[in-house]
Design a binder for these strands. Structure first.
Length: 467
RNA sequence: GGGCUCGUAGUGUAGCGGCCUAACACGCCUCCCUGUCACGGAGGAGAUCGCCGGUUCAAAUCCGGUCGGGCCCGCCA
């Protein structure tokens, strides 16, 4: 017999069905045993009667939490006084006729079935993440994450975007954050870097003529983790050719509205209000702010989006020179291009950067990119690099720009950050399947760990003491 | 690199110098229970209080170190 889910079975009153799943809860009344069977769709109550099949009842009596079972029986309507209004399948139950125990389970180290039970500590949750993931909250969070990404994908496909993957093993970029590096066996002494963002590759895709690209991309940075950020995160990474700021902002806005509304959320203000950086600082004293009233903050389904744009391009760096505030590959606003090329009025040059914020947190950020070599070169000049250093860092981009690079721009939206807004979670790991500890210890598995001597020799790596 | 904080049965917590022979809830085990749905009832097992050292007549409790978790500053284009 073909397996059906709990939800499907609820529609099959009077029929014989096969359900498979986990023993969520067991209620033993002596001559009557209830089993809540849990599968991907939800929960179905299964009933075993003592006066029936003695062998079957004995087996039901031996069931414990999280046993994996296969149960055949008849779906029957419950008596009116037996209906459970809190359960989507609460109108019916499965009268068990056949039970097979597919696998037994140790008693779980923490509460899985009871959604109201106090949460276990991080250490134990991550050690047994596969059990933690069975809990309702984690199932809900990660399924919502999956749906959010699916909605974004759908919108982008519908608007002629191509999903293209960019390399995970790539070149170290000295500016920005610290790189995660990977030793090269074929080039001893040399290292790849894991991408901090697909920034340069997606620009190369624009030069490559794809015009509309997106990727659900992993971004990896070796900076100390926090509650809301880790070594790696995922972003909906988008880039478009022949666009200006408004084009990108409008497209992204339409995508976000469609995605979140189709998931049952409400957007406070459409179109999203827009503030210049100067306005935001004057009005809110910060470039991230929450436009919800105190009363509105109580509504978990309300999202208040806003755009912030016209950021300063540069700020003073620690060594007294200039550094970029957001992205060195950005184009300045059109009226400041001449100043940038001349290296004048640097503190007043504004960038085409736009940040999308939601309920006080950053949802995403992007810009129109430099697509002419002299613009990118001028940015690096302002930051104090000489011609040779510029060539070393971004020479490949300057060269690519010489072959008919179209004007282009894009954005990256943090998947975890957006899910935190959608779920109300304060911690990144609540919307990631297998997060790390604060010291970078992986969940369940034991990374990082030392290499064997043989591996080190093959890679040409010698471990030295740090002092 | 720095600061703060927490480690007590399987889990979550209480206890913070002697009344601790370490308590409570959930879970677990045994028995009872034919309508529960976080079922209920009775009984039971389970902790050298993270680890090492020190102070003290006496340490889960105070001090130092160490290991581990969490949060923050720096950092994170």
């Amino acid at each position: 017999m073909k397996r059906v889910t709990a939800i499907e079975a609820a529609q099959a009153v009077g029929q014989t069905v096969l359900l498979q799943g986990w023993v969520h809860a067991r209620r033993d009344h002596g001559k009557l045993i209830f089993i809540d069977l849990r599968d991907l769709s939800g929960i179905m109550q299964v009933v075993f009667w003592g006066k029936g099949d003695e062998q079957l009842f004995k087996m039901a009596d031996s069931l414990r939490s999280e046993f994996v079972v296969s149960i055949t029986g008849t779906i029957q309507e419950r008596q009116p006084n037996q209906v459970n209004p809190d359960l989507p399948t609460g109108q019916v139950e499965l009268a068990a006729e056949k039970l097979e125990i597919l696998n037994e389970s140790q008693t779980p180290p923490f509460e899985i079935a009871d959604a109201n039970a106090p949460e276990a500590g991080e250490e134990i949750r991550l050690k047994y993440r596969y059990l933690d993931l069975r809990r309702q909250k984690m199932q809900r969070n990660l399924r919502l994450r999956s749906q959010f990404v699916q909605k974004c994908r759908q919108f982008l496909f519908d608007n002629d975007f191509a999903e293209i993957e960019t390399p995970i093993l790539t070149e170290s970029t000295p500016e920005g954050s610290r790189d995660f590096v990977v030793p090269s066996r074929l080039n001893p002494g040399s290292f790849y870097a894991l991408p901090q963002s697909p920034q340069q590759y997606k620009q190369l895709l624009m030069i490559g003529g794809f015009e509309r690209y997106f990727q659900i991309a992993r971004a990896i940075r070796d900076e100390d983790p926090r509650a809301d950020r880790g070594f790696e995160h995922t972003q909906v990474d988008i880039e478009m050719s022949f666009v200006d700021q408004n084009d990108v902002m409008n497209m992204v806005e339409a995508m976000m509205i469609q995605a979140v509304e189709s998931l049952g959320y409400n957007v406070k203000e459409k179109p999203f209000p827009r503030f210049t950086y100067a306005e935001a600082m004057e009005k809110f004293g910060a470039d991230k702010f929450d436009l919800r009233t105190e009363a509105e903050k109580k509504d978990p389904k309300l999202l208040a989006y806003a755009w912030v744009y016209k950021f300063p391009f540069f700020e003073k760096s620690d060594d007294g020179g200039w550094t970029f505030t957001h992205n060195p590959f950005s184009m300045p606003v059109p009226e400041h291009v001449d100043d940038l090329l001349a290296g004048k009025n640097i503190e007043n040059i504004l960038t085409t950067q736009y940040d999308l914020i939601c309920n006080g947190y950053e949802s995403g950020g992007g810009s129109i990119r430099a697509h002419k070599p002299e613009i990118l070169k001028a940015v690096y000049k302002v930051m104090g690099f000489n011609d040779e250093q510029i060539k070393e860092r971004v020479g490949h981009m300057l060269e690519a720009f010489q072959y008919g690079a179209p004007p282009h721009g894009g954005i990256a939206l943090g998947v975890e950050r957006n899910l935190m807004n959608l779920t109300g979670e304060e911690y990144l790991r609540e919307v990631q399947a297998f997060p790390m500890t604060g010291k970078g210890q992986t969940a369940v598995m034991k990374g990082p760990k030392p290499l064997t001597d043989a591996q080190l020799k093959e890679l040409g790596i010698k471990i030295i003491e740090r002092g």
